[in-house]
């Protein structure tokens, strides 16, 4: 049974439909990224898929916020969606990703503030 059947064949259908509705409101490139995120989270979906729901919700939330702010996809996820998914699910290597985001955060702040100061 694959992830889709797991999801659609269960009581999670309704929750899943809500995700789809939210995703459809996103810009095209974000929708594509959402598809990739689902695909990459699939291997984590082991047993019922139920435990993936909050993670999917978090990822979709991130995309929504970023799209609403007009941020580019690249800015939000970087160029490594599989890595992003690993970190979201807390799998192997999640630490490394968090370290990278941490550096990214401080670097972006320093860069943008210095541009501001002129």
């Amino acid at each position: 049974m694959n992830f889709w059947e797991t999801i659609t064949g269960s009581d999670l259908t309704r929750e899943w439909k809500a995700f789809e509705a939210r995703a459809e409101a996103l810009p095209d490139d974000y929708q594509a990224a959402w598809g990739q995120i689902i695909a990459h989270l699939f291997p984590y979906g082991g047993f019922t898929g139920r435990n993936l729901m909050p993670i999917l919700d978090a990822a979709l939330g991130l995309l929504e916020v970023a799209a609403a702010d007009g941020q580019s996809l690249q800015e939000v996820l970087g160029d490594d969606i599989p890595g992003f998914c690993t970190a979201l699910a807390g799998g192997e290597g999640a630490r490394t990703y968090r370290d990278r985001w941490r550096e990214q955060l401080n670097r972006n702040v320093a860069k943008k503030l210095s541009r501001l100061g002129g």
């Binding site: 984590y44 047993f47 435990n51 699910a89 807390g90 999640a94 941490r102 550096e103 702040v109």
Partner: peptide, 27 residues
């Protein structure tokens, strides 16, 4: 170190990843 500030802010809150990892080890 804005990142350290953020980490302090969420130190006590479980993350989705932690909840998820717990749920699979439980299953």
């Amino acid at each position: 170190d804005v990142a350290a500030f953020c980490d302090d802010l969420v130190k006590d809150s479980p993350t989705f990843a932690e909840v998820y990892q717990q749920s699979i080890s439980g299953e």
